[in-house]
């Protein structure tokens, strides 16, 4: 069912295609699948939002794409096709070259993601020189330019600052500048605004939006915040307990969520623009991925489950244009 993408015309193929990805972790002598046969596509220039709660496997998926899984984790199966090349089969050296040049990444915690003993200028210049045939002087000019682009005032002067001399918001801007320094085709942003205040978050989302248009790059934004999704994403994949529960363009997802988990997630988010007597909750908690429930992993918390839900893994079924949900009752729920 997978066409040989290497020979297919690249224009029609997605920029990034993750297929049947399974990532396992060894902990305490046991192996458990943190990500279980997950698949999604990202088209060139598109913003895919991956939303999920802690333990949903969303961050692990991003690390797998970057080839940065921790030592006790490994990709057990699947393909990660980037511009038609399977990243999992790429030699380490090629992968290193791809990282930072073609795929950029920004993390949640901008303090630990920057090296405290080098100036931010050094770190950006390092990235540029590493990936491109550019002299240090030219790389430094590019760094100044990038810092100015991400909205750092008096960029030339701040180049010699150390990370600790900057605020959290400024450091995240530096991270963005570094990630974009080589004009990547794809940016992976793992909870890029979670550690930041709401006014700074708004500034950064605006900035990311401007930059991705300017650079024409695709973005995968990983978040637990439905607001960030509503604000920023073109398409959404909802992760639950290591699997994709639902996948849809952003508006249908908010208008007609087909998976009971997505519905619960949307309903349990308090609204800024309306008063509710009581919040809707999803009972229970995320299952332990070391011993996941059989069948649908959401079944134990689901209000509409039937017997069949606990038997087999529900397949992703189409419920609309580009809208799929892993729920055997998704069809009937679309009311």
């Amino acid at each position: 069912m997978t066409p040989p993408l290497l020979s297919a015309p690249l224009l029609s193929a997605p920029l990034l295609s993750v297929r049947d990805l399974t990532v396992t972790f060894r902990a305490e002598g046991r192996t458990q699948a943190a990500v279980d046969r997950v698949g999604f596509d990202v088209a060139a220039g598109e913003v895919l939002g991956i939303v999920g709660e802690s333990g949903s496997g969303k961050s692990v998926t991003a690390l797998a794409v970057m080839g940065l899984l921790p030592a006790n984790g490994r990709v057990a199966s699947g393909e990660i096709l980037f511009e038609g090349t399977d990243l999992l089969r790429l030699p380490a050296r090629k992968m290193r070259d791809l990282r930072g040049r073609r795929i950029g990444m920004i993390f949640q915690e901008p303090m630990t993601s920057l090296n405290p003993v080098f100036t931010i200028g050094d770190q950006i210049v390092e990235t540029i020189v590493h990936h491109e045939r550019l002299g240090r002087r030219a790389a430094r000019e590019r760094a100044v330019d990038m810092l100015a682009r991400v909205g750092i005032p008096s960029a030339r002067r701040r180049l010699d600052d150390y990370p600790h001399q900057m605020s959290g918001g400024m450091r995240q801007r530096v991270m963005i500048a570094m990630a974009l320094a080589c004009s990547p085709r794809l940016l992976l942003a793992d909870e890029p605004t979670t550690a930041l205040d709401v006014t700074i978050q708004a500034q950064l989302l605006d900035l990311l939006n401007d930059l991705r248009r300017e650079f024409g790059m695709a973005v995968v934004v990983i978040t637990h915040n439905m607001g960030v999704i509503a604000e920023f994403a073109d398409r959404v994949a909802v992760f639950y307990a290591g699997r994709v529960a639902e996948e849809a363009p952003v508006e249908p997802l908010f208008d007609r969520p087909a998976h009971p988990y997505t519905r619960g997630l949307l309903a349990s988010t308090p609204r800024l623009d309306a008063d509710a007597e009581r919040l809707v909750t999803i009972p229970g908690a995320m299952p332990n991925i070391a011993a996941p429930p059989p069948g649908c992993r959401f079944a134990p918390r689901c209000g509409v489950k039937v017997e069949a839900c606990e038997a087999d893994r529900p397949p992703l079924v189409a419920v609309g244009d580009g809208h799929r949900a892993a729920c055997i009752r998704a069809g009937e729920a679309a009311a």
Binding site: F25, A27, E28, R30, Q32, A34, S54, G55, S59, V60, L63, L68, L69, P70, A71, N72, G73, F107, Q108, T112, D190, E191, N288, I289, A290
Partner: peptide, 18 residues
Amino acid sequence: MSAADLAGRPGLLARLTP
């Protein structure tokens, strides 16, 4: 910094099997 820190919630897997 180890890769586990990058996983965002490194303690999670450890906590699953205490």
